[in-house]
Design a protein around this nucleic acid. Structure first.
Length: 347
DNA sequence: AACGAGGACAACCGCCCTATG
DNA sequence: TCATAGGGCGGTTGTCCTCGT
């Protein structure tokens, strides 16, 4: 026989906690601690399951919790850690004092995912949509690529429509894009803003979707800059800079290649978002400058050794066993470089 | 002023691993 | 050794609030 059940489900209350219940739980735990959750509701005079009490305590009542807005630094940390560990919210929350895994998860799902998508970055892989497409396209025969384009548009359609119909022009200032240029993928288009269509009526949005469709198909099928050569699986610095400059001349100066140790810096797509990190720093870094054709990763500025001197092993070791990851990132990092096995765990 | 849509967040659900009897 | 509950965790849902129409 095992343990006795923690509670009888028929006799427990569910739903929102009342202030009285909070007080009971808080005062009991203050006096007796949290040693046995099964006994806590009974001894505290609560008609709640022990599991519910534990959640209420860990997510809301704990005195060391922060309840305010997430700071830019916290958001930055979440994104960085998410690029490494994925949806392991408890691991991420452990690096943010006063934040719970539930907090982090909710913030990610409600804010950060949309921010990244809005910048043309896949929030799952932390790669730009354009590179995801290029990466996949290199593995397919040409006849399959058209299908890929169609399928990708299905995947990204919701995000696109959100951008095209909800975002005001001031959110993503961008010069007019008269037509989808060859060599520019849909992801790149999104990363740069799809021109004057953000506040467009539904018909215009549909037109833009069609243009992106066409551009994506043409780009993947015919343009080496977007679909890297086999021996250079990722666009080279000059390719990326040229593509960006051709697409968005106003912000082209913000795209720069910082050398093998630092990777690309791509900025400007969200210029009016003002005070947050999003307006000043790169959100995406291309990659071929580091270690000859590795996939694009977010990279850390001012910590060149991470990306350029066999940092894979170091970072890998530092994560094996799930030990303290606080040393992985510098306090003022802007770009990140993480080993392939950590950053490419999805694709 | 009323209504609906969307966002934010608290809470629950269900799975998995560990601890216990 | 095995069965079962506890606890942890990620995913999902429900509810409340705000904002736009």
């Amino acid at each position: 026989m095992g343990r006795i059940p923690c509670c009888e489900k028929d006799n427990v209350k569910r739903g929102q906690w009342t202030p009285e219940e909070d007080n009971k739980l808080l005062s009991y735990i203050t006096q007796h601690g949290t040693r046995n959750w099964r006994l806590i509701p009974k001894n505290a005079g609560l008609q709640r399951c022990g599991k519910s009490c534990r959640l209420r305590w860990t997510n809301y009542l704990r005195p060391d919790l922060k309840h305010g807005e997430f700071t830019d630094a916290e958001e930055q940390t979440i994104i960085k850690l998410h690029s490494v560990v994925g949806n392991r919210w408890s691991v991420i929350a452990a690096q943010l004092p006063g934040r719970t895994d539930n907090d982090v998860k909710n913030h990610w799902n409600t804010k950060l995912k949309k921010k990244l998508s809005g910048m043309g970055i896949d929030p799952v892989t932390h790669k730009s949509f354009s590179h995801l497409m290029a990466e996949i396209a290199t593995t397919l025969a040409p006849p399959q690529v058209a299908h890929l384009a169609e399928a990708a548009l299905g995947c990204f359609k919701d995000e696109m429509l959100h951008l095209l119909t909800k975002k005001r022009p001031t959110d993503f200032p961008s010069p007019a894009v008269p037509d989808m240029p060859l060599g520019a993928s849909a992801g790149m288009a999104m990363a740069m803003g799809a021109g004057p269509c953000f506040a467009a009526p539904p018909q215009a949005a549909d037109d833009t979707i069609e243009r992106i469709k066409m551009g994506l198909s043409r780009a993947i099928m015919s343009e080496p800059a977007a679909a890297p050569a086999a021996d250079k699986p990722w666009p080279q610095p000059s390719d990326m800079a040229d593509m960006y400059a051709a697409f968005n001349p106003v912000h082209a100066t913000e795209f720069r290649y910082e050398g093998a140790a630092s990777g690309y810096v791509l900025g400007g797509g969200d210029g009016d978002q003002g005070t947050s990190m999003w307006s000043h720093h790169s959100m995406y870094s291309g990659s071929s400058g580091t270690e000859g054709g590795r996939p694009p990763v977010l990279q850390e500025r001012g910590n060149d050794s991470v990306g350029s001197s066999g940092g894979d092993d170091e970072a890998d070791d530092s994560n094996k066993g799930g030990s303290d990851m606080s040393g992985l990132f510098g306090s003022d990092c802007v770009l990140w470089d993480l080993p392939d096995d950590l950053t490419n765990h999805i694709v």
